[in-house]
Design a protein around this nucleic acid. Sequence first.
DNA 1: TCTAGTGCTGACAATATTGTCAGTACTAGC
DNA 2: GCTAGTACTGACAATATTGTCAGCACTAGA
Lengths: 114, 114
Amino acid sequence: MSQGSRESAQCPVDAAVSVIAGRWKGTILWRLVDGQMRTGELRRSIPGITERMLIRHVQELVADGIIDRHDAKEVPPRVAYSISEYGWTLVPLVAQLCSWGEVHLARTAPTRST
Amino acid sequence: MSQGSRESAQCPVDAAVSVIAGRWKGTILWRLVDGQMRTGELRRSIPGITERMLIRHVQELVADGIIDRHDAKEVPPRVAYSISEYGWTLVPLVAQLCSWGEVHLARTAPTRST
DNA sequence: TCTAGTGCTGACAATATTGTCAGTACTAGC
DNA sequence: GCTAGTACTGACAATATTGTCAGCACTAGA
């Protein structure tokens, strides 16, 4: 087996985590929960992300079947992404991770200011 | 902000994911759900992991407050790890990730042989 | 013609994570 | 003394992930 790959998951937990473990994947998914978005729209809605990174991550999410790519096949290009039917089975989990993450952030961040 | 750090989470999802996003963290956590385990015991129960990697990951999990370290302060050393009270708030989520991961693996793995 | 916009790719550098190997302090057994 | 075992650290190499930059094909507008 390849050594540094996330493919060789010991238990299914790792398989699930690897799907959402990219630097911006959680954020991208979270944006798309509100509905379909075009590439540039998505990019502008996520401060700090570059177009390159966005595209790399959406492509991985598409490859994993989590989101769908809608290409109008027009010129200039007009592409939108949305959470797939399969992806929606993951969204409740992401939502729970979000709640837990909020608690965790509050726990980690000490007495920040005030 | 530091560029390559997972600390600068855009949304709490990333904060939660980063806690369990290590190569073996999901597996380690999953082992500990059954109860407290000693270091070597844990290592032997996870095929493929090296002692170095195990220790790095348990230390991170301890730092995140997910697991507790019990040191008998004996010689030779006698250390055990267990899921902390706070860690148990994460376990239900990990369990769900596990279920989803099973489905995902079944979906990904095509008609594997036979 | 020049510029700006669309979504995307390739090449590469910077950084992060992981794997590998040796070594630590101490005891037990031979 | 030598070996094996405990849990762990430091240094480094291999690999993976991210970030940065240039460029593609094409059209609209000035």
